[in-house]
């Protein structure tokens, strides 16, 4: 394994960079999109809620590979030219956003109805009440499951390998195919994924503790 690491250091490092970049973009993107759809799902406007519900149900029940291939093949053919990295990152963002929407929705719904009513009763708008009262309480509840989603996201970023997105898994596959040292290569790749996921996991735990004090 160490020879694999030593001989392919720069290749694996560049793969790690692409994986990190895709993960960060998808993390921010899916958090924003997911929260948006969570808000749609709990909207009192029936049609908005239905659209939110359909999005979440459709997206989270389709394999990540299919969503990603759609962006890799269909979008460039009919809409705009995007490369494998972009297609993979968009696919990953969309896919994860559905799970985040569900997590955030559950978090918001677990904040007692009275909190919203209390805020509305002094004349706060829906948005003011959400931002000042409900969200801060929902975040505490949502952080542990959100942490799981984020770790899954980093691992799921290996989808980029299928669309030649130059990520860690893609480089790993190529090294395995040229050296035929499959086991050691994937062991090295696994180790590098740990380097990404462990700090994330640790940070989410830290956040969990920090928010629980307040």
């Amino acid at each position: 394994m160490f020879t694999i690491l030593a001989n392919n250091w720069s290749t694996l490092l560049s793969g790690l960079g692409y994986t990190l970049m895709a993960s960060l973009i998808a993390l921010v993107g899916s958090l924003v999109i997911g929260t948006l759809f969570a808000l749609m799902e709990i909207s009192t406007y029936r049609w908005v809620a239905i659209i939110g519900r359909i999005y979440v149900e459709v997206v989270r029940n389709i394999p990540l590979l299919v969503i990603t291939m759609a962006f890799y093949v269909i979008v460039p053919t009919y809409v705009v030219q995007i490369d494998g990295f972009t297609a993979g990152t968009i696919g990953l963002t969309i896919y994860t956003s559905a799970f985040i929407a569900e997590t955030v929705r559950a978090g918001i719904e677990s904040v007692a109805v009275g909190q919203m009513e209390g805020a509305r009763s002094v004349g706060m708008t829906y948005t003011q009440a959400m931002v000042n009262i409900v969200f801060p309480q929902a975040i505490k509840i949502v952080i542990p499951p959100l942490g799981n989603q984020f770790i899954n996201l980093v691992k799921n970023s290996s989808i980029l390998a299928f669309v030649a997105g130059f990520d860690l898994m893609y480089q790993g596959k190529i090294i395995a195919n040229t050296t035929f040292n499959t086991f050691d290569t994937y062991l090295a790749v696994g180790l590098l994924y740990l380097i990404l996921t462990m700090p994330l996991s640790y940070y989410m735990r830290h956040l969990e503790k920090k928010w629980n004090v307040a």
């Binding site: 890799y72 093949v73 269909i74 460039p76 053919t77 030219q81 490369d83 494998g84 299928f162 669309v163 030649a164 893609y170 596959k173 190529i174 040229t178």
Partner: peptide, 30 residues
């Protein structure tokens, strides 16, 4: 893949998992 890297070292090679996917990628302009 090795052959093309020798024949055209400046070009970037995208490696996909099978011929069908490779052809699909060409069709979608990848």
């Amino acid at each position: 893949v090795d052959n093309i890297q020798k024949a055209a070292p400046q070009a970037t090679v995208l490696q996909l998992s099978d011929y069908a996917q490779a052809f699909t990628a060409l069709k979608s302009g990848q």
